[in-house]
Design a protein around this nucleic acid. Structure first.
Lengths: 188, 188
DNA sequence: TGCAGGTTTCAATTAAAATTGAAACGGTGG
DNA sequence: CCACCGTTTCAATTTTAATTGAAACCTGCA
């Protein structure tokens, strides 16, 4: 499976050593490491997703570890994150059903595949990251409003007016976000 | 090191010192530090914008520095970022027009105000961050496609099919993004 | 019960940002 | 030309986040 590796001299891959990756895999991995950093996730998460995206067959833990030259810790953590985001799924349904039908069954490793449907990815991103964020902000806005009320006597009425209008603007943003985002999630 | 932060004797304010801020200001600042970290910008940028958002009158460099207890460097860098994002503007139009009509004019400091219109903020965020990002990704996708073509002989035709379909899916994402985002920008 | 992969945990380490502060840079009025 | 004020620059530092690797933890099997 490995194309002739070890680029050796010539083009030293600079930032991304990509030791065990084909050029194609390396390119795709780069696409996703970049995307993932835009989203504020660790690079390793992008590498793992990128590798799975660039690979037709499912991969197991150990292959990911080897091809990307990552530690077990990173792979474990990265797979967990991607699983939680719904960006990867086990290739084999959880079935135990077939029974213990062979002698050479060692507890086989989970084989992972990338979820490549944009709607699913965006959907869970919204659900997992934006929605909790908005919840947090709602709390904060409430607190801010109360602080403003408490401060009232200390402000000129002109300032108060302005600040009130800004706060209400913020609340509008919030409201818009918390109605629009779930909607988008549904629409995808 | 420090497993436990070792509270020791210091009465130094802990995580959120907010030394010179009213409770209201502190709350609003928190809202924006959080938002800004979601966007992958430095915290200080959120603090500065939050302070300006929470203040009815324009503020000058020195006041920001003092109220947020930031270094000159951070304030300068933060103001620059916010300016570039179109999130703040000078309160006083750049006018020199009136002429040098007074004797007590020291080179006055720029007074900054927050831009509070969501559409403007989102618009420039799209323009300044997402659009350049998409440009970069376009490049990468091209490279990836070429790599795949180059690798063709090394792949089973089944794998090749799958990878080609994934790539084209990626390209679709890209295309959608690069048409939809500018559109959104306009619509705001 | 013991063993053998496979995976997770978590303190220590390393890498990556962000922040600082001192020095340099205008530009303006004296 | 000089001295001053507001601002920017940038190397050094600090802070924060990601990565590592060894040990613990399953779980099914013999």
């Amino acid at each position: 499976m490995s194309t002739t590796p070890s680029i050796s001299a010539g083009q030293t891959a600079p930032v991304t050593p990509s030791p065990q990756l084909t050029p194609f895999e390396a390119q795709v991995v780069e696409v996703f490491t970049d995307l993932v950093q835009l989203l504020g996730l660790p690079k390793s998460v992008g590498e793992i997703y990128g590798l799975l995206f660039a690979t037709a067959e499912p991969l197991v833990f150990a292959e990911i570890e080897r091809k990307l030259d990552l530690s077990k810790g990173s792979v474990s953590q990265g797979l967990r994150t991607l699983r939680e985001l719904g960006a990867i799924i086990p290739a084999d349904p959880e079935l135990d059903l077939g029974g213990t039908h062979s002698g050479l069954e060692t507890p086989r490793a989970t084989r992972w595949v990338a979820v490549v449907e944009l709607r699913r990815l965006l959907g869970s991103l919204l659900r997992e990251r934006l929605v909790p964020y908005i919840k947090r902000q709602d709390q904060r806005m409430l607190a801010a409003t109360q602080s403003l009320i408490a401060a009232e006597p200390d402000l000129t009425s002109a300032s108060l007016k302005i600040l009130q209008s800004r706060l209400s603007k913020l609340e509008t943003w919030q409201a818009r976000a918390s109605t629009v985002l779930p909607l988008i999630g549904k629409m995808l």
